[in-house]
């Protein structure tokens, strides 16, 4: 598991990873270059109402006169921000909790792993939903809440890693040299056991993006920010008269989420060839 990580080897080995990374690069470019790519100000609503795609408005306009194409580009930033921050919170929490449980072992481990199992069983989406409903649907809240509720999967992965790593010679010798538990955890256990969590984090980003979209679709999105879920939510009422308003942001969600799924699958294949054999 602690095999040297080489990007070149990963790239060669998995077609899923290649496709995923190319898609992700495209999405990332859209987010970074948003001001250059946008043809109209996404927050200004002064275009014609429900104009069909083509001409000045590449993907048409919505019911308030916003340019769907520019809003979609702007939405890339929102989705990536939500995805990355939520996944980062959940990754860090999972690593600390799972790493500590697996490394310390015994009673601490029993209590924490029981907790992990319990939290894995609670329906996350609905927990996020009521929390956002109660605490308000600002973007910050949404990101933090998704992050705080989705750590158990990462914790479980990290725990298994820590359990196997602590038996290894280099950890044993660090212990013998009198390094403190905390220092061993942060210097040896976490850095060496991080790869499965990283792969899972790609999955976490995908599910955070889907979750934000679903929350927005339920009317629990941040009204001050443009997001794909909200565009679908706004467009659903005039699907028949202006199908483009809801359809294009949906496609953007699919491309982005799929890129992360493919990256996750690719990483798993490369890091754990026996279990992850997918043929592709």
């Amino acid at each position: 598991m602690a095999k040297q990580f080489s990007f070149k080897r990963c790239w060669k080995q998995s077609a899923h990873l290649r496709i995923g990374l190319v898609l992700f690069a495209l999405v990332l470019l859209c987010a970074l270059l948003a001001p250059l790519l946008e043809t109209h100000d996404p927050y200004r609503l002064d275009g014609p109402v429900k104009a069909a795609p083509g001409g000045e408005y590449w993907l048409g306009t919505d019911a308030l006169g916003g340019d769907v194409y520019s809003m979609m580009i702007e939405g890339t930033r929102t989705s990536l921000k939500v995805g990355f921050i939520a996944a980062l919170i959940s990754g860090v929490l999972g690593m600390l909790i799972g790493g500590a449980a697996g490394f310390i072992g015994e009673r601490t481990d029993r209590v924490i792993s029981e907790l992990i199992n319990i939290f894995l069983m609670l329906p996350t989406f609905f927990l996020v939903l009521i929390t956002v409903a109660l605490f308000g649907s600002s973007m910050t809240n949404v990101m933090i809440i998704i992050g705080l509720t989705s750590w158990p999967g990462n914790a479980r992965l990290m725990r298994v890693q820590a359990m196997s790593l602590k038996e290894r010679v280099f950890v044993k010798s660090a212990e013998a040299l009198g390094e403190s538990k905390a220092s061993i955890l942060f210097r040896y256990i976490i850095p060496n056991g991080i790869y499965p969590v990283v792969a899972n984090t790609a999955m976490g980003i995908a599910s955070a993006i889907l979750m934000e979209a679903s929350l927005s679709f339920l009317g629990l999105g941040d009204p001050n920010i443009i997001s794909w879920g909200q565009m679908v939510y706004a467009g659903r009422s005039y699907m028949t008269s202006a199908w483009w308003v809801a359809t294009f942001p949906g496609i953007a969600i699919i491309i982005t989420v799929m890129s992360f799924y493919l990256i996750c699958d690719g990483l798993n294949t490369v890091l754990n060839p026996k279990a992850g054999k997918r043929g592709a």
Partner: peptide
């Protein structure tokens, strides 16, 4: 395994996995 049908199925399954259910519903209604 490893043949084109398998690969195709794998990509199609990723496609549907990434799809927000409500969006698929809207498109299906349309």
């Amino acid at each position: 395994q490893g043949r084109w049908m398998d690969n195709l199925l794998s990509y199609v399954s990723y496609l549907f996995d990434s799809m927000p259910p409500f969006w698929l519903g809207l498109v299906a209604i349309l």
